Amino acid sequence: MLVITRKKGESLLIGDNIEITIVKLDDGSVKLAIDAPKEMRILRKELYNEVKAENQKSIEFNLDVLKGIKK
């Protein structure tokens, strides 16, 4: 994991086409601006984890339903 220090208005680059800029600093939070190609999916990790958990529940439910079907 890379740990980097940036100040308001400073940026960092990921590859050739993703730029993350520090827009605002508040007590305990940072506002970021992300410039990336439109086809690149950008999600907050907590949202990604929620969706992943819901998908797993759905898979488990569907497997239980299938197990209950008799041939």
Results as ranks from 00 to 15, higher is better:
V23P: 00
D35W: 04
D64V: 00
L43E: 14
L66D: 11
L25G: 00
D27F: 10
D27C: 00
F61E: 08
S29K: 11
D16A: 10
G28F: 06
S58P: 01
R41A: 13
F61S: 04
K7H: 10
S58K: 12
K57Q: 12
E19T: 09
N55Y: 09
E50M: 11
V30Y: 01
F61P: 00
A53T: 04
G68F: 03
G9M: 09
R44F: 07
K45D: 14
K70N: 08
K24T: 07
R44D: 14
R41C: 00
A33Y: 12
A33K: 14
K8I: 01
I22N: 09
R41L: 13
V51P: 01
L32V: 12
Q56R: 14
G9C: 04
I20C: 05
K57S: 12
G15N: 05
K57M: 09
S11W: 02
K45I: 10
E10H: 12
P37A: 15
K70H: 07
N62T: 03
K31V: 13
E60T: 11
D35V: 02
K67C: 03
G9Q: 03
T21K: 15
G68N: 08
R41S: 08
D16N: 15
T21H: 06
L25K: 04
I34T: 02
L43A: 08
I4M: 12
N49M: 13
R41D: 07
N55A: 13
G28H: 03
V30T: 15
N49L: 13
D64I: 01
V3A: 06
E39Q: 11
I4F: 08
E10K: 12
D27H: 07
I59N: 05
M1G: 13
P37F: 15
S11M: 08
R6T: 03
L47G: 01
D26W: 02
G9V: 01
E10P: 08
I69T: 00
V30K: 02
L12Q: 04
K70L: 11
Y48S: 06
L43H: 09
R41N: 04
K38C: 01
Y48V: 02
K70C: 02
N62E: 11
F61N: 09
Y48K: 11
L32I: 12
R41H: 02
E10I: 06
E19A: 13
T5G: 06
V23K: 14
G15E: 04
K8Q: 13
V3G: 00
I20H: 05
V65Y: 14
I59R: 14
A36M: 08
L63E: 15
N55Q: 13
K57W: 06
L25R: 06
I69A: 03
K67W: 01
L32A: 10
R44N: 03
E46I: 01
D64C: 01
D64K: 15
N17V: 07
F61T: 06
S11V: 08
T5R: 05
Q56N: 10
R6D: 11
A36C: 13
S58Q: 10
Q56M: 09
E54M: 10
V23H: 08
D35A: 11
G15W: 09
D27N: 05
V30N: 01
E60C: 00
T5N: 10
V3I: 15
P37M: 15
T21R: 14
L12R: 07
L47S: 06
L13W: 10
S58V: 11
K24Y: 03
K52M: 09
G9R: 08
D27R: 06
K8G: 00
L63T: 07
K71F: 05
V51L: 15
S11L: 11
K52S: 11
K24R: 12
E60L: 12
I42Y: 02
